[in-house]
Nucleic acid binder design. Sequence first.
DNA 1: TGAAATGTTGGGGCG
DNA 2: ACGCCCCAACATTTC
Length: 478
Amino acid sequence: MKKAAPVIVWFRQDLRLNDNPALVAAAKTKGPILFVYILDESQQCWEMGKASCWWLHASLEQLAISITKYYHAQLILLKGNPQELLEDLIKTSAAQAVYWNRCYEPGVIARDTAIKQFLKQRNIEVFTFNSALLHEPWEYQNRSKQPFKIFTPFWKTLQTMPLRQPLAIPKNIRSFKKLTSLSLEQLSLLSNYPWYEKLQNYWQAGENSASHQLKLFLKSGIKGYQILRNRPDLYNTSRLSPHLHFGEISPVKIWSTCQQTLEKDPSLNQDISCFLSELAWREFSYHLLYYQPTLPDKPYRAAFNKFTWEKNEQALKSWQQGLTGYPIVDAAMRELWETGWMHNRSRMIVASFLTKHLLQPWQLGEAWFWDTLVDADLANNAASWQWVAGSGTDAAPYFRIFNPELQAHKFDPQGEYIKKWVPELKLLPINYIHAPWKAPSAVLEKADITLGKTYPKPIIEHNFARKRALEAYRKTQG
DNA sequence: TGAAATGTTGGGGCG
DNA sequence: ACGCCCCAACATTTC
């Protein structure tokens, strides 16, 4: 029998061996496999944020370990222009086919389409798969065969669509020997200043960790999720977002594990359904981005093109640094800076504050999140900012302006979230911790606080901001 | 996956 | 006992 030709498995945002369709398909060829990751420096796609770079570095390290452990093989690391690097690799290895799992950022789609065409012209086979989504963005259709614009019918449709089972790690594959690779350090994903060391206190990248996190969540976080997911002071969200973004775990795996958990404990029905609907929001974002490639830059609804934002560097900076004088906003922004992540309720509150209280363009908030979040994801980030700003489809209505003080009382009733992230307020009694500007001077003094010195006065007054936003937003109607 | 303004109701104080 | 007012509690409307 003729010996099977070598094949390339090109890892991208699928940094796992479990449930990896491209890897499974490549293994079936029986040819020796080259495992490759290419850091794209061809400027064709959205440049990664700094927190994402840190995560990628850690995730690649884990993937390389897994590949060594399972296959006694090496993950080849490269950087530069993917098309040129693949061409070189094919020349030196005599590989006959390239396997990859699809990505969905508009720039990446364009890049991959070109590479696929380029390779096919050279008689190299290309096989691509869905590993990152429950269903392909183009597989969702509403009753009139159009893309969805509203979440609820999208979610209903998703639940009726048959879903594949997760795939096991392929065994007994042959790996390609004699390779040259850059070292992980040579990818230069980490900056010289080790700011990111703090992130190591909160996160462990890699598919083992992702799978462990899912188990932990289903064991101790899912019960009561429907209510408790809104509490930034508690640990009741899955925190799987960065793992999902880099493909360390697949949504198919999450879905199927949830179904298994539900079978064991039917009383979790509401909570699991609610959690899966959050996964569906992720799908919805990808669906929107696929049909609206300008989603990250331009308002979905054209009426917002003429919106009169009040650009203000100082206001933006106060928001970024967590110095707005509104404890819940500041706690959230500092949580982000410290951990590279922010609770979803907090994200809504700070996004509402930036776009509505401060009237800063949502793109500025989006850019800050892009740089600082370890789970920064083009589709989710863009869709979510537009949702809050009101410029998206099926968005929050323009008049929905969060009152930071009320939100704080509702979702951080004991003030624990504030105490954790805004420690200079920790001595304030609960009835003032969410609104220190209301505290009598004796109370402030006792709590060791001087407003304007140890903690800022509110940079904007709520009622004034609310009315100003309503006025500005009203013009986008009709 | 709001908040604020406005409207309604009903119990209690009081003349 | 009755009408009147107050206002909390809840409901509805508006932004």
